[in-house]
Amino acid sequence: MKIAVCIKRVPDTETRIKIGADGKSIDESGVKFVPNPFDEYAVEEALKLKEQTNGEVVAVCLGPDASQETLRTALAMGADRGILLKVESLPQDPLVVARALAAELEQGGYDLVLFGKLAVDDYDQAVGSMVGELLGLPSVSAVTRLEITDGHATAQREVEGGVEVVEFTLPAIVTAEKGLNEPRYPALRGIMLAKKKPLDIKDLELDEGGIEVLELTLPPDRKAGRIIGEGAAAVPALVDALRNEAKVL
């Protein structure tokens, strides 16, 4: 099987967010960037499928030059080669991102393209499903279980109050949810090998699409709360506050 995995470079989730001087983006100084956590599930699934069926795993990233590092992580985990679609900056409009990725993926002749469910910076949860529609391929999002035999696939996705079971045929698009697998850590040998694996860089120019950033702000602090008291003795006061002050009972 020939499998592509789309991975994004994002700020580490522990990073303290500071707003940049333009008031529209984050201040990237001192920010540690990592591969998007959901994309690690996608890479792991691709590697597992490759181990079963042979073939090739290609990691694709749209982002600034520093995304080479992100791709190297996927290569160190075991992907065979990387493609960087290099841009100065990423637009807010997910359709612009989806179109750029779809144009690249269309040429690859992949049996399966894996995405993360969601990028933890923009929180769109959109690009995978959009690429599916743009390429006219079956696509299933937020998948926690995937089985593939002879070009036929069954996936499970958790929805409110149940688990949806979806059947489809390859080629197809799948986006990975936590629970699909446990991503492996790159071993030292993998990290060494990754340095020699091919990484194609293609320059791209993107338009802004239909979304203009007016501002990026920190969320208002929650109004300072109060400690009602200690231990079981505080229970009556808590119930009273919930009932008469917060009015939630």
């Binding site: 359709l95 989806a98 529609e133 409110e160 239909g210």
Partner: peptide, 23 residues
Amino acid sequence: ATSLGKDLGPRIAARLGCPLTSD
């Protein structure tokens, strides 16, 4: 923005060729 809406919204946007803002 439920699990259905988060799956369906991007599909509609892709078919319309238009922007999506989620959640």
